[in-house]
Nucleic acid binder design. Structure first.
Ligand code: SF4
Ligand code: SF4
Lengths: 162, 162
DNA sequence: AGAAATAGGGATATTTTTTGTCCTTAATAG
DNA sequence: CTATTAAGGACAAAAAATATCCCTATTTCT
């Protein structure tokens, strides 16, 4: 069970978009080039972000993406779920229904303990992701990335932002 | 990102094995029939449990599986990891290395903030699974499953245990 | 000793998911 | 009017999950 690579891509793209000046947009092409990713496929991830309402888009030259809300209002969970979907990582196939000893029709009402426990673990994962904001990430990156690289990257992005 | 169905199978099988009297074994055939699962494929899941040292096996007629330790000493995490593997659910493909502004050779030392945060969420998931013991599950099931079904199932298993 | 049942495991096949490409359409800026 | 963009549908390739089949060594029972 491995998350889609699109999750990593989306998080990185959001981190870049978080540094974009108010009102400017960055295109799929620029984001793909910056991260060395296949443009067409990255586009699908960005479309997911768009459908989830996390980013705003415009068309035409100078078009592209910007965040739909402030980085402090955007959580990791929102980004991850936009790309990865909201279905729980444990799905119950209801195998207890096959118990040869069961009364016919049993097992339909409540999910069993196995599923509930697995879902609690899933919730713990989501809780953690919900507790981290995009602004937290940007803060850490700003500290850790060498300032000359940080500046050059910022410059690179600005040159291509519409 | 969905866990393998073998995870559900393994958990259910362990729950059954937990109720097995000291020194007795239950075969793949019985476990597959009880849960309505393909015997050969379930066998792979049980082999994973065996390789992880969670169950003990014997060959021959009356052979099969029993738990290698007490249900109170066996956690959900051990069972899940035996089947699903121990790799983290977020894998870093190091896309920051593609940054056109980077100095050559950058990005090799430490994992970046994105990966660290995702790994923390992964740990939260594992922590939760580690906190639940197989005995906890059995306790809940004993409460929730109608006692006549519980008894019939127990009887069914005993008749087939070697 | 011989027959039957078992776990282990290798080889292979099928199905589903992930990853990726290609092309068309509608909108926008210059 | 042209160039550029996001959106999205159709399709293709690769990887992973889900099986199935078969052979071997071991154990139990007769
Ligand atoms: S016991 Fe729980 S996890 Fe297992 S099949 Fe039933 S509902 Fe699903
Ligand atoms: S920034 Fe982190 S998650 Fe992204 S590619 Fe680099 S190490 Fe991986």
């Amino acid at each position: 069970m491995i998350l889609k690579s699109q999750v990593e891509w989306a998080l990185h793209c959001c981190a870049i978009l978080a540094g974009l000046p108010e009102g400017r947009y960055l295109s799929t092409k620029a984001l793909a080039e910056f991260h060395g990713l296949p443009k067409e496929y990255l586009s699908k991830a960005l479309q997911s972000l768009s459908q989830a309402g996390l980013v705003h888009t415009t068309l035409g030259p100078s078009g592209g993406y910007r965040l739909a809300k402030a980085p402090a209002e955007l959580t990791f969970l929102e980004i991850v779920e936009a790309v990865e979907g909201r279905t729980r990582t444990f799905v119950c196939t209801n195998i207890r229904a096959n118990n040869p000893c069961r009364a016919p029709g049993y097992c339909d009402e409540t999910p069993c303990a196995v599923a509930r426990i697995m879902w609690e673990a899933d919730e713990a994962w989501r809780d953690k992701l919900r507790s981290v904001r995009l602004s937290d990430l940007v803060e850490i990156l700003a500290k850790e990335i060498p300032s000359d690289l940080w500046k050059r990257s910022f410059q690179w992005v600005l040159e291509r932002a519409g």
